[in-house]
C-alpha cells in the first residue's frame, strides 16, 4: 500500500468535516474492496476516513411499506436478519451470496453501492427493487444513482447513510457466480410491485448494472418464466473477457432472468 493517514470518524458530522478538510479523502466502510485495491496499489488515497465507529449507520428496520437498512450494515446481518428474510427474502438471499462468510462479516451495503463494482450483487438488488439511496444530503432513486462502471451519482463529500427498499409483492435473485471469484458473472434481480416490474442485471454490462425494458414489458403481461421464453438481449454492450464472451453473457441474462422469476413466484 502507498502511505496514507488513518482518520476515525465518531459521528457523521465529523466525517463530513474530515472530507472537507483533508487532502484526497476516501471513506472506509468494510474495506473488503478498498483495502485489497490499495494493497495492489490500484488505488491510493492520502487520507482514509473510517466510518466503522460512526453511531447510527448500521441497523435494519421495517417502516411502513419500506425496509430501511443502514449503510454500515454488514452483509452477514442482512443475510441472516429475520426482518429482511420476512420482508424481502430475495434481498437476504442476495446478501448471503456475496463473497464468502469472512468477507460478509466485514463488507457493508453502503460500501458496495458506493463502489458500484460492475460485478457486485447489491447494485442489482438496489436497482431491481427500486431502492432509494439516502445520503447526508439527499435521497437518490436507484435509477439515478448508478452511473456506469465504478461510477455513481454521489458527490465527493456525500456519505450514504441508509437505503430504503420498498417492499415488493414478489422478488427473486439468481446469480451465475464466477467460479473463481464468486462475483456475479451474471446476476439478475426481478421484482413485481403492483403493476411495476423491474429487471436489473449485474455482471454482464460494460457500463455496470442496467435494467432490461423488453423483459419488463413481457413480464407485465404475466409474471411467469414462460413470458421470457425465447427472449434474449443483444450482445452489444456486454462485457467480454476470459471468463465469458459478450454473447455468452447475453445468453446468461435470459437464463438467469427466467430462473429469477421462477424463484420469485415459487
Amino acid at each position: 500500500m502507498y502511505a496514507f493517514t488513518y482518520n476515525r470518524a465518531s459521528g457523521l458530522r465529523q466525517a463530513q468535516n474530515m472530507i472537507a478538510k483533508l487532502d484526497e479523502p476516501k471513506l472506509l466502510a468494510g474495506g473488503q474492496s478498498l483495502l485489497p485495491a490499495m494493497k495492489l496499489r490500484l488505488a491510493s488515497h492520502a487520507n482514509l476516513i473510517d466510518l466503522g465507529r460512526v453511531e447510527g449507520l448500521a441497523g435494519i428496520e421495517l417502516k411502513g411499506r419500506s425496509l430501511l437498512i443502514g449503510a454500515m450494515t454488514r452483509h452477514f446481518e442482512v443475510a441472516t436478519s429475520p426482518v429482511v428474510r420476512q420482508a424481502i427474502p430475495a434481498l437476504a438471499q442476495l446478501a448471503g451470496q456475496i463473497g464468502d462468510p469472512a468477507v460478509r462479516h466485514m463488507g457493508t451495503l453502503g460500501g458496495s453501492l458506493a463502489n458500484n463494482d460492475p460485478n457486485a450483487d447489491y447494485p442489482a438488488g438496489a436497482l431491481g427493487l427500486g431502492a432509494t439511496i439516502i445520503t447526508n444530503r439527499r435521497r437518490i432513486a436507484a435509477d439515478e444513482f448508478f452511473k456506469g462502471m465504478f461510477e455513481t451519482a454521489l458527490e465527493p463529500d456525500e456519505i450514504i447513510t441508509r437505503v430504503s427498499f420498498p417492499l415488493p409483492k414478489k422478488a427473486g435473485y439468481m446469480k451465475f457466480p464466477n467460479p473463481a471469484s464468486r462475483f456475479a458473472l451474471v446476476g439478475v434481480f426481478v421484482c413485481k410491485r403492483g403493476s411495476e416490474i423491474r429487471v436489473a442485471v449485474t455482471g454482464a454490462g460494460t457500463a455496470g448494472v442496467f435494467r432490461v425494458g423488453t423483459f419488463e414489458e413481457a413480464l407485465k403481461k404475466r409474471f411467469s418464466p414462460k413470458s421470457l421464453e425465447g427472449l434474449t438481449i443483444p450482445a452489444d454492450g456486454m462485457s467480454s473477457d476470459i471468463h465469458g464472451s459478450a454473447e455468452y453473457r447475453a445468453h446468461l441474462v435470459g437464463v438467469m432472468a427466467r430462473r429469477a422469476v421462477a424463484a420469485a413466484v415459487g
Binding site: G31, Q32, P101
Partner: peptide
C-alpha cells in the same frame, strides 16, 4: 466473527 486478517487494518 471470522474475518480475513489480511483485509482489515
Amino acid at each position: 466473527r471470522a474475518v480475513k486478517s489480511c483485509s482489515i487494518l
